[in-house]
Amino acid sequence: MSTNDTPRHDELVVTHAPEGVVDPGLPPHQPRLGDTDPKASKRSERIVAALFGLSVLGSIGVIVAYFAFPPGESVSSIQQSNMFLGLGLAFCFAGIGFGAVHWAKSIMNDHEKVEERHPQRSSDEDRAAAVEVLKEGAADSGIARRSALKGGLITALALLPLPVALPLIGNVGADWDVSKFRHTMWRRGTRLMTDPTYRPIRAADVTIGSVVHVIPEGLHHDELESDQSFMDEKAKAVVLLVRLDERDLKHTEGSYHGIVAFSKICTHVGCPVALYEQQTHHLLCPCHQSTFDVADGAKVVFGPAKRALPQLPITVDDEGYLIATDDFSEPIGPSFWERVK
């Protein structure tokens, strides 16, 4: 474009003030107390020295606290240790900090100085010289006349990320078998066990209004198969069991005399849905407050989840213990792209 593109130093100084008003320049320097009164100046010096002294005391305090207050077996003991060590260290830091700043503010020369700025842009000559240098280099390399070189280099560089990324990406996802999302440990006949006490649950023992946190039988460190990971299985299989008055249940399918079992994993983003309101039969997810109606198939009544919690169909075995009649009829937890495929 025009010469407007080439700011010179004087072009940096632009005034927007109406004509006739001129920049009066820097306001006059206001002397500090210490500038005129030697006593005040001396006092500042003593304050700074005292602050540095405080830091020394802080350092000593830390060393004393280290030996005097070891952390122990109780929360109060670690809090005590933490507090004394911390206070000592805080004084150690703050003494230096406030001392230095007070020194700068009350003793050091406080006359403002002015420095000139220069435009960031390089001068036209420098620019031309830069272009010239690059042109020379390009000519030396011969890249302009040899298109095979150019093409070869670009192709080689373009492919380079692939061999680096492939093993990395290929390996980090383990076996990439995302169909595991669809199944849990629950099978026909799997007993419902209490979590974390791991005892079977007799249907008759579950009173109306009570809530039981449930895991499947077999989800125990001694009983897991070698290819099963306790945490991975538990993350999918946890269930919340509730007993309602049978008359309150809108659908009895999959339930046993008013006992219903739902996946505990929220269909929103997967938090455990753990807050049960006895009166309303509502289950609330404490993370994002999706609310599910246990009496109505755990349908969503409020919040960011769309789908009902999957139900675990249950019955009792010969001994009266609660068992599952099948796995969940759909994948548990948050939605994913191919969930209903």
């Binding site: 130093h9 004087d10 940096l12 100084v13 632009v14 920049d23 009066p24 320049g25 820097l26 306001p27 830091f93 703050a94 230096i96 900090g97 406030f98 001392g99 230095a100 700043v101 007070h102 020194w103 700068a104 503010k105 050091m108 020369n109 406080d110 403002e112 100085k113 002015v114 420095e115 000139e116 700025r117």
Partner: peptide, 27 residues
Amino acid sequence: SGRTDGNVVGFPLFPVYTAKAGGFAFI
């Protein structure tokens, strides 16, 4: 007043800002 796009008004790095910023770090 006195401050323009063509200048910078303030205090020198050494010693004022060494002390102020350094001290502030400790604060």
